[in-house]
Design a protein around this nucleic acid. Structure first.
Lengths: 209, 209
DNA sequence: ATTGACTTATGACATCGTGTCACTTAATAT
DNA sequence: ATATTAAGTGACACGATGTCATAAGTCAAT
């Protein structure tokens, strides 16, 4: 997390910093991004940067958090609109992200993040759907919106794992689309196949209705 | 891939290089690992290193390939032993990796890889199960061993996606165990729950038997 | 044994990036 | 007005990367 000094800054300076950081992380993925470029873009000294952030990772994850927070709000809104239909909401989130990520410029930052996922980054995407792990409230926030009647689960603990599975698969589909440059149509088809498989189950065992 | 010069080296020198690289990548994850340390350990000059490898990434991914090739062979052997039972084989692979990764020293390299997954690294784990993408033969190699009667799929295309799903979920379970320091018991329980969910399906829809 | 063509090895070097620190400047409180 | 605290600065030490001119080794053909 950025320091209190950073949050004490006036809005325009803070915005300028973030804008500069996002631009640099859009230019190059985290390991290749340079603080020198960020401070040049933001017009502050190198020393200042270290007074605001712990290092470039700090700035990067903060930016990522801002982005995923936005998308989480969207996901929650979708769940409400779709009367708690989890699969339908995931589907919509996937489609929206495909479109967003294909819009040049703006989302290059996210592309770089997605194409250089570390487990921290994947975790942050998991938080998109589940909220921060330690706060169980966030899981509940989603759980309360989901219509369980449509899901094939016996107990509440399983719900957490359902979300884990859906997140992994959705996330990998997004990575795939970007790393293999799939067309939207192909990406959506792949995703649909996998979601169908997840819905109906991979094994041939009798299922209660 | 390493250069031909590297492969022309005599066995002992090649082994020494790889050993040195593995030791350094065990000490620190890819971004923090340094070529200086590798060449010091291997007792060669900096220039030589660049004659063998394109950079540290090159050495890293080559090492990773060696490791995953070994595990792929193990996976194929399991499939045969278990009469093509895919879920049972995945389960066994997961348990074996848990144990291997808990053995200190040796596997620190893999731990560092797993905890700093990039999509390239995850891809390389996917290859563990599916073989290299371009060579469809490799997918077939697995497909031929799998008992389809136990699986709930209609066509062969779906099989590829089944593998993708199983790989994502298995991989994330391994990352989880390492990054959250779960006990083996807890990790195995989580994995079992998710595999059960995958088997029986996430949604309440009638399934043909 | 000598030549010469080719392959392999070397380490100094230019370049760039990071994180720190002693110091200055600004803001705020007393 | 002065003291105290916060914010801002850029030179610097350190370490890493990739290159390159040059040296050393190998080996087949003469």
């Amino acid at each position: 997390m950025p320091t209190s000094t950073f949050f004490n800054l006036n809005d325009s300076k803070r915005a300028k910093l973030l804008q500069a950081a996002e631009k640099e992380f859009a230019r190059a993925p985290l390991p290749q991004a340079s603080i020198a470029n960020i401070v040049k873009l933001a017009g502050v000294s190198r020393g200042s940067f270290y007074q605001y952030f712990n290092g470039k990772e700090d700035a990067f994850y903060y930016l990522l958090k801002i982005h995923t927070d936005k998308r989480r709000a969207y996901f929650l809104k979708l769940l409400q609109e779709k009367d708690g239909d989890l699969m339908a909401s995931m589907d919509q989130v996937f489609r929206t992200m495909l479109i967003e990520l294909s819009e040049e410029e703006h989302l290059q930052f996210l592309k770089n993040a997605v194409l250089n996922v570390t487990h921290e980054i994947e975790d942050s995407f998991t938080e998109l759907f589940l909220g921060k792990q330690p706060e169980v409230d966030a899981v509940n926030q989603v759980k309360d919106l989901v219509d369980f009647k449509k899901l094939n689960i016996d107990n509440k603990q399983e719900f957490f794992h359902v979300m884990q599975i859906l997140t992994s698969v959705t996330f990998r589909n997004i990575v795939d689309q970007l790393s293999r440059n799939l067309s939207h149509e192909k990406a959506i088809e792949n995703f649909r196949i996998e979601m169908d498989l997840l819905s109906k189950g991979l094994s041939k065992v009798k299922k209660q209705v």
